[in-house]
Design a protein around this nucleic acid. Structure first.
Length: 493
RNA sequence: GGUUCCGUGGCCGAGUGGCUAGGCAGAGGUCUGCAAAACCUUUUACGGCGGUUCGAAUCCGCCCGGAACCUCCA
């Protein structure tokens, strides 16, 4: 391994060496989507960022357990209504039907962008018992109180010994002075307290019986419960979008600390927002793109569609912790860049070191290439700097292209460095960054081209060529069929 | 108002004290029947004003501009 991985730990706002609690094992929990509607591109960016992080950790040899949840209950609107319940009512469906539909859609989108599946994808409704148990624990420890059938986390009590707001840099007295008035807050002792269990209103569909009430769990609880269940009380990496820092992650931290007596995660990684014209992409601002809209180009702000790999490439050209602005110009440039990348990749895959070459090494070239290879590691080790890594890969591809066109000779660089270059480029591009060659080149398209040529030769009565083409196709298991209606083909033994 | 962060060349976007990021676009060249691709060379930078330093895009201060969060958000 070259160098050491360093990560920006949001909770201390510093870049620090990454040292897992129990190497070679690494536990990583990422807050997943709430499946009440289609995921938009901003969501996708976060999950692609963590996909690369997951891939790189594995590449480094860590045994990663990647947990990403599906939120299927407990996420409330200002009105106090559950998002999924609302959608279910609107569409006259079971809440679980809504959940399943959007979860399926989410999975399909992530696979389209070549993201690896998480190892565990737990859902909130599948962990109600555990959530209820954590509430009991919090009640026993005096960090929670029941009020009118609901249970709330006592932020004031927690803050006596701990710091609520440690992640987002907030102080409770400042928060108190600016908390806004919401409906249904009367049961709370303080506006800062948050729900662990909510008593369900009569019309509320998603409800489970407990000793406090028929109700449902608070949003923040599931992540505390499921992360500690699958990764332990303290685990290595907790990730999510920056917009979740407050209150969601803050509440998770407090719940875990209070219930387990240990801090939840060693490293916090936060991804930044995707913006459109400088503004955060979000559903409420009506400036969000759905993945398929970007792929097809079917959106009022788009000139054309972009392939999933172009989009992935575009996103990886920036650092995950920076905002990334969406524009036609930037996407078009990324599209060309991606084509350049995969053309180089395609050439490299077919490039082998000639067997009978006598080496006469050009030290300058060898050193240069060696350094570029090492730079890929250094870049990824520096808080997963994918943008820089891509830059180094482009530099390496120049060498590949030069070899291909004969502007650089194999003798100059030698077999050892050629092999190193080849494996470095392929590994980093495909395995680490998850960028693959994607094309609409299908065998059938190519076959049709050949058949057109066949037809033209036949029309020109160039029977030597006709026979040749027919024989070559037959070698490939394709029988040409001359019909009155035109030329066709069939599979043949 | 509080918290956190950002401002880099025509565009996107890395870079945190000295060392060519990279991509797209532009210019010139090599190669080529032509073209394309590829390769080589190259122009345009660090919001403003001060300060620290031998040296600042990078550190500090102030100012200007922008964003996110402050109980829906990835």
């Amino acid at each position: 391994m070259i160098g050491k991985l360093r990560v920006f730990n949001s909770i201390i706002r510093e870049k620090v060496p990454f040292e897992p609690l129990n190497p070679p094992y690494v536990g990583m929990y990422v807050c997943g989507p709430t499946v009440y509607s289609d995921v938009h591109l901003g969501n996708v960016r976060t999950f692609l960022s963590f996909d690369v992080i997951n891939r790189y950790l594995r590449f480094l040899g860590y045994k990663v357990r990647y947990v990403r949840n599906i939120t299927d209950v407990g996420h409330l609107l200002d009105s106090g209504e559950d998002k999924i319940s609302k959608k279910a009512k609107l569409e006259k469906k079971e809440p679980m039907e809504v959940v399943q539909r959007y979860a399926n859609d989410f999975h399909q989108v992530m696979r389209t962008f070549n993201a690896l599946d998480p190892d565990i994808e737990p859902s909130a409704t599948g962990h109600l018992l555990e959530q209820i148990q954590m509430i009991e624990t919090l009640l026993e420890q005096g960090f929670a109180y029941e009020s009118n059938g609901s249970v709330y986390f006592d932020v004031g009590k927690y803050n006596e010994a701990h710091h609520y707001g440690i992640l987002s840099g907030r102080k409770t007295d400042e928060l108190l002075s600016q908390s806004r008035e919401l409906d249904g807050q009367d049961d709370k002792r303080s506006p800062l307290d948050f729900a662990l269990w909510k008593k369900a209103a009569p019309e509320h569909i998603m409800r489970w019986p407990t000793r406090w009430s028929d109700g449902f769990p608070g949003w923040h609880l599931e992540c505390s419960v499921m992360s500690s269940k699958y990764l332990g009380n303290t685990f290595d990496i907790h990730g999510g979008g920056m917009d979740l820092k407050f209150p969601h992650h803050e509440c998770e931290i407090a719940q875990c600390q209070a219930a387990n007596g240990e801090s939840q995660a060693k490293y916090w990684l936060h991804t930044n927002m995707l913006t459109v014209n400088g503004q955060k992409m979000s559903k409420s601002l009506d400036n969000s793109f759905l993945p398929w809209q970007l792929i097809t180009g079917n959106h009022k702000l788009l000139d054309q569609g972009y392939s999933p790999m172009t989009i992935r490439f575009f996103m990886l050209q920036s650092h995950y912790a920076s905002t990334l602005d969406f524009s036609n110009d930037a996407l078009k440039a990324a599209n060309k860049g991606y084509l350049k990348l995969i053309n180089g990749l395609r050439i490299l895959k077919n490039l082998t070191y000639p067997g009978d070459t006598s080496e006469s090494l050009n030290e300058k070239q060898v050193t240069q290439i060696e350094k570029m290879c090492d730079n890929c590691y250094h870049a990824m080790n520096d808080d997963f700097n994918t943008a820089l890594t891509i830059g180094h890969i482009f530099n390496l591809l120049k060498k590949v292209n030069s070899l291909y066109t004969g502007q650089l000779s194999f003798e100059e660089i030698g077999e050892e460095i050629f092999k190193k270059m080849k494996s470095t480029i392929l590994t980093f591009t495909e395995d680490v960054l998850g960028l693959t060659i994607e094309s609409n080149l299908s065998g059938e398209n190519m076959l049709n081209l050949v058949l057109q040529e066949y037809k033209m030769a036949k029309d020109a009565k160039d029977y030597d060529k006709v026979d040749l083409l027919r024989a070559r196709l037959k070698d490939q298991g394709i029988a040409v069929k001359d019909m009155k209606s035109g030329v066709g083909w069939a599979y043949e033994e």
